[in-house]
Write a protein that binds this DNA or RNA. Structure first.
Lengths: 188, 188
DNA sequence: GTTTCAAACGAACGTTCGTGCTTTTCTATA
DNA sequence: TATAGAAAAGCACGAACGTTCGTTTGAAAC
């Protein structure tokens, strides 16, 4: 289940790396063990042994996706001063990820999928999203906005909306729309 | 496939009615023929005969959902004058549906699910969403806004964002946030 | 040089899915 | 009311899924 040797850890990380990309496009449902094994050129059972159950694989993938998000979006933004600058950095970096790296948004693909399936998987996704909203709200509060919770919701909606619209229409202008709308909400 | 008798039509409509509700919660993937048949207390094959393929069932469900959306959201708003009043009516009615009738949003549940699966189903969903965005944009233009396309995107994002957040957090305040944000964008 | 154990494998399981064939039941009309 | 045709059922299929099993490999540990 949990790897013991160096090689086991490497394999497990390779699996989760590919799992994040796959789930970002097709959701956690499309993340099938057989397909994942085929793409990594290993056996279903060999891959399965790293996790012990499909649910454990899903939970591990969610945790890895949260780690990646923190590393690519949150941590770089921590170098900027609290408040409005950090708030703009958070959203800017997120939108950069979505528009450049064209693999889809893990949270956009999975949150709608599990919002009506109670259980540990749904809880893990909800917790990650709550943390993201709370981070936005914290910076909005630090920036002195009057309704930080509402502002966090608005920013969240615009970013996720841009991703959803781009995915379906292929129109990249939506990212500019989101940036302009957020710029208006959090002016320089 | 297409019903001929009165009874056939009734059954087909009953199937699609239930199919919309089911897919609004679980998506078109969770809409399985066996489950749908069980809920309607009929046989898989009997239900299957009405459509001939799963894809035809999905397409028929999408068309029926679009009809329902037009009847419940779009047409009532047509009684108000063009421009800002109609724009507010469209979003207000939509948010009412989402917060009152607690079955989830068909478009929210299905659009993320199929945005990376090319084919007629994806096309049908995309067309319905495009029509909705176009309707918003048309009213924004009639209301004299400077960037009608962007405003339509912002409103779309706020409504869908409210649904997504409510589904995952259970916090109904997000609907108020969406209303206030839209009120600010399209003042009385 | 032998022992040990994690890592990976291949084959099979039980289940569920969509779908096709055949038969029975019902409905509408002449 | 009789009968053609539509609606629904019954049964079985092939494929894909998650999962389990016993076995093989390869690299440390003694």
């Amino acid at each position: 289940m949990t790897p013991v040797t160096e090689k086991g850890t490497q394999t497990r990380e390779a699996i989760l790396d590919r799992a994040i990309d796959l789930a970002s496009v097709e959701g956690l449902g499309g993340l099938t063990i057989g397909r994942l094994a085929a793409e990594l050129q290993m056996s279903k059972s060999g891959l399965f042994g790293h996790f012990g159950s499909k649910q454990e694989l899903q939970l591990a993938t969610i945790a890895a996706a949260a780690d990646r998000f923190r590393a690519r979006v949150v941590e770089p933004a921590l170098e900027l001063p609290e408040g409005a600058p950090r708030l703009r950095a958070l959203t800017g970096r997120y939108l950069d990820q979505l528009s450049t790296y064209s693999g889809g948004c893990f949270w956009g693909a999975t949150s709608a999928e599990f919002d009506d399936r109670p259980g540990p998987v749904r809880d893990a996704i909800a917790a990650a999203l709550d943390a993201w909203l709370a981070a936005l709200e914290g910076q909005a509060r630090a920036a002195g906005f009057e309704h930080p919770e509402r502002l966090a919701f608005e920013i969240y909606s615009l970013v996720m909306g841009a991703n959803a619209r781009y995915r379906l229409s292929g129109d990249k202008r939506v990212f500019a729309y989101a940036r302009e709308a957020i710029e208006q909400l959090v002016p320089e």
